[in-house]
Computed example of a mutant assay.
Amino acid sequence: MQTFYLSHQNEIPAGFPDMVLALGYFDGVHTGHQEVIRTAAAIAAEKSCALGVMTFHPHPKVVLSPDTDESNMRYITPLPHKEDCLQREGPDYLFVVQFDKQFASQEPQEFVDHYLLPLQVVHVTAGFDYSYGRLGRGTMETLPFHSRGRFGQTVVGEVTREGEKISSTAVKEYIRTGDVEKARALLGRPYSIRGMVESGEQRGRTIGFPTANIEKHHTYVVPQPGVYSVRIHVGGRWLDGAASIGFKPTFHDEAPEDPLIEVYIFDFNEDIYGENVEVCFYTFIRGEEAFNSAQELIEEMNRDVEKARGALAAYPDVPGSS
């Protein structure tokens, strides 16, 4: 996959082959997004064309909402993570368009003329609710007019699971409320967060549960405080564990601004400080609690570990990402 970063200030590079292009923001690259991309892939194969995917960054809210900026925007898949998820869908080209005020102010016709036609697009796929151009005035209904008949289009209808629309909003809500199993069903894979192992308070070692403290690489949506069964990718391996997300109420009276993510890796005793890791969340075990003593916490953590081991046994296959 070749990746191109495009902006309204720059000309689109020349020389692309005929291309079928999937359009969308694709936060999470959930199963609904996958349907849009795989529809494009099938058409590209039928037409013997290249397959392209176009996404945008940052989220439009960062540019259009006065209450949102990149520091408080929470993503299911921040851009580098999203790029990797999109790559697994097998496109020949990925186009990441800079979403800024100039981009947001362009007319729908300008978007088609500047971003689609120069890419040798012969067909476009997008979800039924995709919009483009200033104030979202361009829709899949207006696209034939703006394309002036120079490419075809396929609209992918609403994708549902058990009667529920699959959307990034729904995935985020499941993550925020700790229902990582439902998030997993909509994503088609476990929800995961990438970060680096940093030095923490070392308190876990004193109670027999040394943990890897995860400093997130980007502004992810974080599951609600509690304990989860997880797998962690470190040093080329997927390892089973239990993660605690929260504020350590047993030991602290004041909560930090962001919840801490700590992973206890089963049967593991290696120095992994400074390692880049990915944590996949499988099941919610319990909410965060304040215990009267460290001994009560230890007893509960032993129960958590057994529950996590049992939960992970139901998911024998390791994730396909890293």
Rank of each mutant, 00 (worst) to 15 (best):
V222L: 09
L117N: 09
H123Y: 07
A44F: 00
F16D: 00
D267G: 07
M301I: 14
T3V: 15
R148F: 02
V121K: 03
A255L: 06
P66R: 03
E158L: 10
A126E: 06
K307C: 14
D258K: 08
P225M: 04
F111W: 14
R189C: 12
L94I: 11
G204I: 05
D67S: 12
G287W: 10
N292H: 15
L86D: 09
I175Y: 01
G157V: 12
E181F: 08
E288G: 10
V227Y: 00
G52F: 01
E262L: 05
V36T: 06
M301H: 04
K101Y: 00
T169W: 03
R203D: 06
K61H: 08
A313M: 13
V279K: 01
N72D: 10
N10V: 11
G236Y: 09
D304T: 13
Q106C: 14
D92W: 05
G127H: 05
K182M: 13
H30S: 05
K47S: 03
S147M: 10
G163T: 10
C280I: 12
T3S: 14
L6M: 02
E35R: 00
Y93F: 13
L86A: 08
T31I: 15
E173W: 01
E83V: 07
T283L: 13
P13H: 10
L297T: 11
T142D: 10
D69A: 07
S7V: 07
E275T: 07
V277C: 07
A183H: 05
S48Y: 00
G236F: 07
R137H: 13
V222P: 02
D304R: 05
Q98C: 14
S7F: 06
G149Y: 02
D258M: 10
V156M: 00
P60I: 08
F209C: 03
D18G: 06
F151H: 04
F16T: 10
G274H: 10
E164T: 13
R194Y: 13
E46P: 05
V180A: 05
T154I: 13
T283H: 15
R74V: 08
K101F: 01
V53A: 04
Q87E: 15
N213K: 03
V171A: 11
E278T: 12
Y282W: 12
S48A: 15
S293N: 05
D258T: 08
H33I: 05
G188Q: 01
E275H: 12
C49M: 06
F128A: 02
K82R: 10
S71V: 09
Y315F: 15
H57P: 01
A42E: 14
M54C: 08
V277H: 00
Y220H: 06
K172V: 07
V234A: 11
K82I: 08
Q98E: 15
A126D: 08
K101V: 12
Y130Q: 02
R137V: 06
I261C: 04
V234L: 07
